[in-house]
Write a protein that binds this DNA or RNA. Structure first.
Lengths: 212, 212
DNA sequence: GTCTATGTATAAAG
DNA sequence: CTTTATACATAGAC
């Protein structure tokens, strides 16, 4: 059964060869048999890694590949004992999660403090503005400022994380950058590059060694 | 160059065939040539998805598969325009991240409120205990309570997220559970099952449609 | 890190 | 959803 494989694998994969004509595969009569197995599909086709414009096709791909990604995550998790969280925001607005995202986010935020940028909260009523913004009751924050307020509160929280780290947990290990991979011919997608970089303050951090 | 492929691919993959003797592959002389290409490796071997006990092997696998996972994440991201964040806590304590984790965590926390459980803060000095705990200066929180304080602050923040949702952003889309995949014969790893479930309060949420 | 052989994911079609 | 054929990931050895 495997006998012919050897001959084939030698010719099957030649990654250096750019494959000049991908679709000539179906037009070639391979055997002398006249009933040459009508080849129901062309099999998995090579695709370029760029945005799939066609809506339906994109959704199918998203669905298939998200499954695959989560399966890989699960396997990696089991094989190596690593804890993994994956969050996916689909283009049309759905969130898909893998792993105990909330628990791991919590763990992550505690161990990876980021820079604090001030939130002034100028627009609140006078009677509240005497207190620092983060001590004011949530209700006094104008609705249109809520998102900004939350971001600031988030950073406050992360700052506390920094304080905790400073308090003695600051044994360090290296942290890889957000885009560690360097696939040939591949670059980070534009929309990711454009996101604000909250990671500027992150260089090194430590997570617990025991019970990890 | 591709001509021989057809003959080979027909015999290459027969997933239904359990492959009764995996190591007979190397002992079989495939051709009549006496110099039968000594088969330098056995190729990729099938492995069971369970913890790899051997330290070195586990680290190699972690490293290879984490790369693979990040590459898949990048491809999915580019192909479908999805935004993806992956956090990996290796067994020995390293954090590896993919994507703009912090920005997406922030987005995630804003859109996915979880239940608030009280943090009483009983141990603070008297002069501060008149204010609600979350309005007290961080410095007044005893060091040993900091972690608990942070968790509570986190939940407060998420509660604000809930308020935002209630304020008119509550168009809903389905959220999948943390373990959506159902691979045959596969179950979530024990250590993930044991993590506290902060997701109890999460059922549905909405993320922005435009500019997403 | 690289290489090889093979297991697995998945594009296209039903 | 399932099937098919093929592209791609990766286990094992260096």
């Amino acid at each position: 059964m495997e006998e012919e494989r050897e001959t084939s694998t030698m010719t099957c994969l030649t990654p250096k060869d750019p494959l000049q004509s991908p679709n000539m595969l179906i037009s070639q009569p391979k055997k002398e048999t006249t009933t040459q197995t009508p080849k129901t599909t062309r099999g998995r086709q090579k695709i370029e890694i760029k945005i799939i414009e066609e809506e339906t096709k994109r959704q199918v791909t998203f669905s298939k590949r998200r499954r695959g990604l989560f399966k890989k995550s699960a396997e990696l998790s089991v094989l190596t004992g690593a804890k993994i969280a994956v969050i996916t925001f689909s283009k049309c607005g759905r969130i898909y999660r893998f792993g105990h995202v909330d628990a791991l986010i919590d763990k992550y935020l505690r161990k990876s403090p980021v820079k604090l940028e001030g939130y002034s909260g100028d627009n609140v009523a006078d009677e509240e503005s005497r207190r620092p913004w983060w001590e004011r009751p949530v209700e006094s924050v104008p609705e249109e400022e809520l998102e900004e307020y939350m971001a600031a509160l988030s950073m406050l929280r992360e700052n506390i994380g920094k304080k905790i780290v400073a308090m003695g947990n600051d044994r360090t290990v290296e942290m890889v950058p957000a885009w560690p991979i360097n696939v040939m011919g591949w670059k980070p997608p534009m929309d990711m590059q454009n996101l604000e970089s909250l990671t500027d303050g992150i260089t090194r951090c430590r997570v617990g060694q025991n019970g990890d």
